[in-house]
C-alpha cells in the first residue's frame, strides 16, 4: 500500500492538469485585460446571432470603443488569437477573435494597435420620428435586441452614430438604437471641424488652426487651471498613441519579483526555525 499510494497520487496529479485544460475551453469569467479604449482605427469581424441566421460581419471600431481581452490561444488553424469582448456602443457588445499579429502585447511594455486613427462621425443628424404611435428604442442595432424605451411620433431626435441603418439616440434619459426606416431627416450637420487644432495652446482665448484638409477651424475656450488641455486633441490622420491601462504588465512583473523575494525570506525563516529547534533538542 505504501508503494501504491504515491503512484496513485502522482497519476492523479498528472491527469488532473490535462483535465483542467480540457475543461477550460469556455470563456474565462474574468478578462485578462479589461476596459481598454481604442485610440486608433481597428477593424474586426464577428458573428451576429441576433437575426434568424448567423451572419459574419465586419466592423470598424470607432475611437473610444472599449475592449476586454479574455484569453489567448491557438485557433483550429494554428494561429494565435485573442478572445475579445468589444463594447461596440453603449449597451451593444460583440465577441471577436483578434489575431495576435494585429496587436502587440509584450511584458511589460505598452499595448498598441498599429493602425491609423479612425475618423470621428461625419455628421450629426437631426430627424423627425415617423412611426405611429411611437418608435422603439432598443439596446442594440437590430430587432433582436430588447426594447428599452419609446419615442412618440413627430418627436425631433438627434444622432451621430449609425450602424446598419440604425441610429444611436438619447431620448428622455434613455440611450439606445432606433431604426432609421422610421425617421425623416431634417438636417445633417458636418462634424469634421471639431477634429482639427493646430493653433496655440493658450490658457484663454481663441485657437485657430488647420485640420490638414484645408478647412480652417476655430476653437474658443477658457482654461482656468493653466494646464495645456488642448494638447490631446487629435489631428486628422495623426497617430494618437496607445490604449491606456498599460501598467498592468509591469504590475505582474512586480508581483513575480515580490513572490520570489517572499519565497527566499520564507526559506530563510524555515532554515532558522529548524536550526533553532535542533539546538534546543
Amino acid at each position: 500500500m505504501k508503494r501504491i499510494l504515491p503512484v496513485i497520487f502522482a497519476i492523479a496529479l498528472v491527469l488532473l492538469i490535462p483535465a483542467a485544460a480540457f475543461a477550460d475551453v469556455g470563456m474565462p469569467v474574468e478578462p485578462l485585460f479589461e476596459s481598454f479604449v481604442i485610440t486608433k482605427d481597428f477593424t474586426v469581424t464577428y458573428t451576429d446571432y441576433t437575426g434568424d441566421y448567423e451572419v459574419q460581419r465586419t466592423v470598424t471600431l470607432p475611437i473610444g470603443t472599449k475592449l476586454s481581452f479574455y484569453d489567448r490561444y491557438q485557433d483550429s488553424s494554428g494561429n494565435t488569437v485573442w478572445d475579445a469582448r468589444v463594447m461596440l456602443y453603449e449597451n451593444f457588445e460583440i465577441w471577436t477573435s483578434i489575431p495576435d499579429d494585429q496587436m502587440r502585447i509584450t511584458m511589460p511594455s505598452k499595448e498598441v494597435f498599429p493602425t491609423k486613427k479612425a475618423p470621428d462621425p461625419d455628421y450629426e443628424v437631426v430627424a423627425t420620428v415617423d412611426a405611429d404611435p411611437c418608435l422603439n428604442i432598443r439596446n442594440g442595432p437590430s430587432t433582436g435586441f430588447n426594447i428599452i424605451g419609446l419615442i412618440p411620433d413627430n418627436t425631433v431626435i438627434t444622432y451621430r452614430y449609425v450602424y446598419d441603418n440604425w441610429g444611436y439616440v438619447t431620448y428622455d434619459n434613455v440611450s439606445g438604437w432606433v431604426s432609421l426606416d422610421y425617421v425623416e431627416i431634417n438636417q445633417k450637420t458636418p462634424l469634421k471641424a471639431s477634429a482639427g487644432n493646430n493653433g496655440n495652446n493658450g490658457n484663454t482665448g481663441n485657437n485657430t488652426g488647420n485640420n490638414g484638409s484645408g478647412n480652417e477651424v476655430t476653437v474658443t475656450g477658457s482654461d482656468d487651471d493653466g494646464e495645456d488641455n488642448w494638447k490631446n486633441v487629435p489631428k486628422t490622420g495623426e497617430s494618437v498613441g496607445e490604449m491606456f491601462d498599460s501598467d498592468s504588465g509591469r504590475l505582474l512583473i512586480f508581483c513575480i519579483i515580490g513572490a520570489v523575494l517572499l519565497a527566499v525570506v520564507v526559506l530563510v525563516v524555515i532554515i532558522l526555525i529548524v536550526k533553532f529547534s535542533n539546538k534546543r533538542s
Binding site: L32, M107, A263
Partner: peptide
C-alpha cells in the same frame, strides 16, 4: 503554511505571466 507561502505565489504569478505571454497551451 510556510512552505506554501514560499511556493504558491511564485507558481501563481509565473503561470499567470506565461498564460499572458505565450497562451493557453504553454500555460498548461
Amino acid at each position: 503554511i510556510l512552505v506554501n507561502v514560499m511556493t504558491n505565489p511564485v507558481l501563481v504569478s509565473l503561470t499567470f505571466f506565461i498564460r499572458l505571454a505565450y497562451g493557453r497551451t504553454a500555460y498548461y
